[in-house]
């Protein structure tokens, strides 16, 4: 056994790492507070947020409103933007001093960058990309539910003798908790001893993505010949879902939409979490471009369309009224 940094019986409390961007908490941090609240209550323990940054008081208050009992804030100009060294060094120092029992982080690129580094620094176990969290009956250990093998296999993983028991969770797994401005909590500022020389990363540039890149989209709404030249509803739905518009080659050939939207064998191969495929028959040359999608929804008026053989959710109907109703439904229940 690789010796733990501290023993289970010294460890106390459930901590959530509060990822922030420009002082605003990331959605996944709030989602983790929501789930953390539920987990902490079940065992009667405290829920603590760990917030690193510069000028993040508003974020700390936001965390309290979303369920934290206590927020540990470490502020320093060197923590303004995420770098591996700065964040690992500061978090590790605080954690080794406070000895939390459990630490949850969001599985964003930076959350995973930190979690993987921190787990080794703390010589502890990390359950990555959990789709569910629960306490094990009897032992009170954190059970992280994970998927592997392309989503085909699930497992529950626990960390028996090392602390903190760490887990990361993807954005969107847990619901966003409601904000309660009356929820009380304590904001504690801790001293940061961080030197510029500890940081081996320099950020040169940050770019927010604009423009089409269907290969990175987590939601794609794709239209084919069935949209009959009208990409309006498809585009509106994509916008509502924060996704991108995709298309079959025929739709591109007909000039209804640009080539950078073409999915398939001679177009782009995509890996969205959800692909809504509208008015596309499902030729193999198209389907190879969405086969790794997490969920495929097919809307097609032809019940015999091959796309239904590779869809998870199938709607046999005219796409226009279906999209109209779906758009209305999403707008109505917009969180």
């Amino acid at each position: 056994m690789i010796p733990p940094a501290y023993a289970p019986d010294e460890a106390r409390g459930l901590w959530v790492f509060l990822e922030q961007e420009g002082g605003q908490l990331e959605g996944v941090a709030l989602e983790l507070l929501g789930k953390g609240r539920e987990l902490a209550r079940a065992r009667g323990i405290l829920l603590t947020g760990l917030l690193l940054g510069h000028g993040v008081e508003a974020g700390a208050r936001q965390a309290i409103a979303h369920g934290a009992d206590h927020v540990v804030v470490a502020e320093d100009p060197l923590l303004a933007a995420y770098t591996t060294d700065a964040y690992t060094n500061v978090s590790a120092r605080i954690i080794l001093e406070r000895k939390p029992e459990t630490l949850l982080l969001g599985a964003t690129p930076n959350g995973r960058d930190l979690a993987g580094r921190l787990a080794v620094r703390l010589r502890t176990g990390l359950t990555a990309d959990c789709t569910g969290l629960a306490w094990e009956e009897g032992t009170g250990l954190l059970l992280g539910e994970v998927t592997g093998f392309g989503g085909g296999v699930m497992a529950s993983i626990k960390c028996a003798r090392h602390r903190p028991q760490m887990a990361t969770v993807r954005p969107g797994i847990f619901p966003l908790p409601p904000s309660d401005p009356d929820h009380a909590g304590r904001i504690e500022s801790v001293a940061v001893s961080l030197e510029a020389g500890e940081i081996r990363t320099q950020i040169l540039e940050r770019v927010r993505h604009a423009g089409v890149d269907i290969t990175r989209a987590s939601v794609i709404v794709a239209g084919g010949r069935g949209v009959k030249g009208d990409f309006g509803p498809v585009t509106e739905l994509a916008r509502l879902l924060g996704g991108e518009v995709g298309a079959s080659r025929v739709a591109c050939d007909l000039g209804w939409i640009g080539r950078d939207h073409q999915i398939g064998q001679t177009g782009f191969v995509t890996r969205p979490k959800v692909a809504l495929v509208c008015g596309i028959s499902g030729a193999t040359q198209f389907s190879v471009g969405v086969k790794d999608a997490g969920l495929i929804v097919a809307i097609n008026s032809d019940p015999e369309a091959p796309i239904f053989e590779e869809a998870d959710v199938c709607v046999v109907d005219d796409l226009f009224p279906v999209l109209e109703a779906l758009i209305a439904e999403l707008k109505r229940r917009r969180p």
Partner: peptide, 12 residues
Amino acid sequence: GSPTVVGAVWQA
């Protein structure tokens, strides 16, 4: 040397 152990495994 692994701090974590796999509890249950099931087909998703």
